[in-house]
């Protein structure tokens, strides 16, 4: 009996899709756990270096670094951290929307914009947008290495040193929970020193070799660690967003399969009923 062959084929194909989405969900779940671990592992460094900079801001350094001085904004730089792959719900779309809003605000003020992208989704988006992309890094994988980001960061830091850009921001998804990711824009440069109560006694570090070199090194590492943190956090967001999206996809596939099965059974039932009535009426005619 060849009733509803199309429906059966359709069910098969949806089942195959469901298998894939389920597998992706499980893969994302296990990767997410690892990404979260990595995120937590990178926190102590960021915290420690923040402490050191905090101390530095409290001391009275003989040398004031340009990374800590606010200047008039004529051009801003953005480091946009996005994922390399899709199928992670609205994660990248939300991030780009937030970025665009901020870009428009700067644009309205007549401020120029440079963009650096980490992650291929951001690259293709800003390329389409026609933004000025000054550096690009992608395919960092699930366990990003800080070494792979130095290039992109250095391009932006150089631009800041040379006065091409006057502010530097990093855009990434902040990991709130498995269900919630928050597109965030953080200011990297100039480093915002928190207002602190002045210490009564004057003190300063001993610097070896020179204050300038040491402070430059320290602040460069600080910016790098913040970008690294952003990338790691974004990976955790990507995996959890993908897990949630794939779970929703699997559930939807299940619903579709149920509906199709119902339709198939109805069609089958209708065919049987029709056949019986045909036989009955045939018998009655005889």
């Amino acid at each position: 009996m060849a009733v509803g062959k199309e429906i059966r084929t359709k069910v098969k194909s949806v089942q195959n899709t469901q298998k894939i989405t389920r597998a992706m969900e499980m893969v994302a779940a296990s990767k997410m756990r690892k990404a979260q671990d990595r995120m937590t592992a990178s926190r102590p460094y960021a915290q420690k270096i923040r402490n050191v900079i905090h101390h530095l801001a409290q001391s009275h350094p003989e040398y004031k670094h340009s990374y800590m001085q606010d200047r008039e904004v004529k051009r801003v730089g953005f480091i946009v951290v996005s994922s390399d792959r899709g199928l992670c719900g609205g994660l990248n779309a939300n991030l780009f929307r937030t970025t665009l809003k901020s870009l428009k605000e700067w644009d309205a003020k007549g401020v120029g914009i440079d963009v650096c992208t980490i992650g291929s989704k951001g690259t293709s988006f800003f390329k389409r947008l026609g933004s000025n992309i000054t550096a690009e890094t992608s395919h960092l994988g699930d366990a990003p290495r800080i070494n792979d980001m130095f290039g992109t960061i250095k391009v932006m830091l150089d631009a800041y040193d040379n006065g091409v850009i006057d502010r530097l921001y990093v855009v990434y998804n902040e990991f709130v929970s498995t269900m919630a990711q928050n597109p965030t824009i953080d200011q990297l440069l100039p480093i915002e020193a928190k207002e602190e109560k002045e210490y009564a006694h004057h003190w300063d570090y001993l610097y070896e070799p020179e204050a300038k070199e040491v402070i430059t090194d320290l602040l460069t590492r600080y910016v790098e660690s913040l970008v690294y943190q952003a990338v790691v956090e974004n990976v955790a967001c990507e995996q959890s967003a993908r897990m949630v999206a794939m779970k929703a996809a699997s559930d939807n596939a299940g619903d579709i399969i149920d509906e199709l099965n119902l339709a198939y059974n109805k069609a089958r039932q209708a065919a049987i009923t029709q056949e019986i009535s045909e036989i009955v009426s045939g018998a009655a005619a005889v």
Binding site: C116, T123, K127, G130, I133, T134, A135, E136, T137, N147, F150, G151, T152, K154, V155, D158
Partner: peptide, 20 residues
């Protein structure tokens, strides 16, 4: 090494812009 990495990142971006 940092310089080389920076150049590389820049080149990638330039290539992209060329594609554009």
């Amino acid at each position: 090494i940092d310089e080389a990495a920076a150049l590389e990142a820049k080149e990638r971006a330039e290539k992209l812009l060329a594609d554009q």
